[in-house]
Amino acid sequence: MKGLYCKSAVSDAEPKFVIQETTLPDALINHQVRVQVKACGLSPLDLKLLSDVGDQRDLIPVGREVAGVILQVGPKVTSFHPEDEVVGILPLDAPCSGLCDIIDIDEHYLVQKPEKLSSVCVAAALRDGLCAYTALHTHARMAAGQTVLVMDGASPFGLMCVQLAGYHGAKVLTTSHSPDTHAFLEQLRPSVGVQEPLVARVIPVYTGSDMLPLVLEETGGLGVDIVVDSGVRLQEENDRETDEDKLLPHKHDIISALGVGGHWVTSHQDLQLDPPDCRLLHLKSASISFLNPEVWTASSAQQGRYLHILKDIVEKMSAGVLRPQPQEALPLYEATVAMETVQRRMKQKAVIQL
């Protein structure tokens, strides 16, 4: 049985991904279940995070968002039975790759997959759904009637945030990075309920539009309650920035767009705030949270809440409330090249069908 792994020992160079043979133990222990994988999502590998938590393995398993069918259950498993369809995210210290035909995983990382939800769809979007829930519910405590600003709403993560915020009655503002994504966001409608636009205003940052005055215009000068970013610029524009970097919001613009008591959820790991930025946050009594979705599987302190979130995500996807953009499934023999592309671009996703 083969799986995809990352050679972490390669320093000062791009990570190298290789196919390796792997074996499973003869018997399952306690709460483990044996799953035949039907689809596996590929997300960028955070090697720095793995190093910080002490994962120093030479071969790091790749592919953690899995959907499949249970073949066998351990002696203490109570939640599942053979032939149940399940979906889940492998923990950081998982010994096997999600791209193996058959894997062993603890039952407490899995939830039932609705019958009409495809394995490819849920494996491709589960992580983005988890990030959206973590940002809007766990960190920002989103409530109906609030105004939410989502950066790059057409990205896989941004789209989940837009739909989740709209479903819970928030007023949604977002930015677009191209004419195509702008048109997509303008035409976005919920699949259930009143067919009104999900986004109150789409700000085309690719045209050079200044985001801050448009946000303040839309909110009557009060600012937004929640900002969710997918990256941020710490410095003013310079010649070394890529075109994608220039589309990211500046940290001071985000803070200025926050209203009194507002909350900024950032995915920027190395965010640095200057004293004027902190002063402005203090004046607004605003706060910042760092979005790290790995904390759910890295710590078992809130395992029940984590499983509740996963279950709600797949149920909303099955009902059409959360509709990820269609993702083309790739065959297993393209997994290495696909993962190299995902790792290089950092924001791209891929899904492998087994």
Rank of each mutant, 00 (worst) to 15 (best):
D52H: 13
D52M: 04
D52S: 15
V53T: 13
D58A: 09
V62S: 11
R64F: 13
E65G: 03
E65K: 12
A67W: 03
A67S: 15
G68K: 11
V69C: 10
V69H: 12
L71A: 01
Q72C: 10
Q72P: 12
V73A: 09
V73N: 07
P75I: 13
K76S: 15
P82F: 08
D84P: 13
V86N: 08
V86T: 14
V87N: 09
G88R: 09
I89K: 12
I89N: 05
I89P: 01
L90E: 06
L90N: 07
P91I: 11
L92A: 14
P95K: 03
P95E: 07
P95G: 02
P95N: 03
G98R: 03
L99E: 04
L99C: 15
I103P: 05
D104V: 01
D106G: 07
D106P: 05
D106Y: 05
D106S: 07
E107A: 00
H108S: 02
Y109R: 03
L110W: 02
L110E: 00
L110Y: 03
V111P: 01
K113G: 02
K113L: 07
E115S: 10
K116Y: 01
K116M: 05
S118G: 09
S118M: 02
S119F: 14
S119W: 00
C121W: 04
A123D: 03
A125V: 01
R127W: 12
R127Q: 04
R127Y: 15
R127E: 07
G129N: 14
G129F: 13
L130I: 10
C131W: 15
T134L: 11
T134R: 07
H137N: 13
T138N: 06
M142T: 10
A143F: 03
A143G: 14
A143W: 05
A144Y: 07
G145A: 09
T147L: 05
L149D: 05
V150H: 05
M151C: 14
D152I: 09
S155E: 02
F157D: 03
F157C: 04
L159Y: 00
C161W: 01
Q163D: 05
A165I: 00
G166T: 02
G166D: 08
H168K: 14
H168E: 12
A170D: 02
A170L: 01
V172G: 06
L173I: 07
L173N: 00
T174E: 13
S176E: 06
H177K: 11
H177C: 15
H177E: 10
S178M: 01
P179G: 11
P179C: 14
P179T: 10
H182M: 13
A183M: 10
A183F: 00
F184L: 13
L185N: 12
L185P: 05
L185M: 15
L185V: 00
L188C: 13
R189P: 04
P190Q: 14
S191L: 13
V192S: 15
V192I: 10
G193A: 14
G193M: 15
G193Y: 13
V194E: 08
V194F: 14
V194T: 10
V194A: 07
